[in-house]
Nucleic acid binder design. Structure first.
Lengths: 118, 118
DNA sequence: ATTATATTTAACCATATGGTTAAATATAGA
DNA sequence: TCTATATTTAACCATATGGTTAAATATAAT
């Protein structure tokens, strides 16, 4: 039985629940960036972005390393593995659902080919 | 390029960001349940649970089907697939990280076996 | 020493969560 | 019809988000 750190998981999912923060993570997947660089695509003040970074950092998804007067932000995907592991438990359920959809479509298809309609 | 529905994804991650709601999903993975049954393990009022169910329902993670005076709750894992797909983009990053950890441990191990220490 | 740059902190606002208790609703059962 | 059961809605409260602007901090550059 895999054991999950509830608080960590809660913070991770919370961090992922905002489109701005997901975009920031996507940007960091392309490489480290400064706070100003991260903020530039958004129509939002710097303090707002700084808060988002704080939430990402609380979840352990990024690290901010001070380098002189700038702060280099770096992705840390480790908490995403925990999140993925948690979700993977439910894989059988969405697959079962897709299977039955496929089955349904298959049945319809069969019917179309045997009931004389054209 | 996979396209994600931002709002749906936000609602899904938001729904997963609370331990009570994750526990409710886990319970529903064992089969449908009534609201009262879902509430019983928690030290929390029924209206509180009802709100959690509302948040899960907004994310599309559960459905509440009215059946007489009771309401049968059912898991729908489909949004979890979207969430899993979104997260999977970052898999290479946590794997790279684990690889370099393994590499590091490997290096240490080699050193221990060749530097004369015992 | 002064000024400019990068970033955070403080103070504020509106809205959303996460909880409560009390009341409303709807249906089942006696 | 009256009552009990299942659940939600309403009204309230405290705290957290997500944003703002203004001020503070720290460092680089002149």
């Amino acid at each position: 039985m895999v054991k999950y750190n509830d608080t960590r998981l809660s913070h991770t999912f919370m961090a992922l629940s905002d489109a701005t923060r997901r975009a920031i993570l996507a940007r960091l997947a392309d490489g480290d960036a400064l706070v100003t660089e991260l903020a530039s695509p958004f129509d939002m003040s710097l303090p707002a972005v700084s808060k988002h970074l704080g939430i990402l950092e609380r979840a352990g998804l990024i690290q901010r390393k001070k380098d002189g007067r700038i702060r280099r932000c770096q992705l840390d995907a480790a908490p995403l593995k925990e999140a993925a592991d948690w979700i993977s438990y439910y894989k059988e359920f969405w697959e079962a659902r897709l299977d039955s959809l496929a089955q349904y479509l298959d049945d319809i298809n069969k019917k179309e080919n045997t009931d004389g309609t054209r």
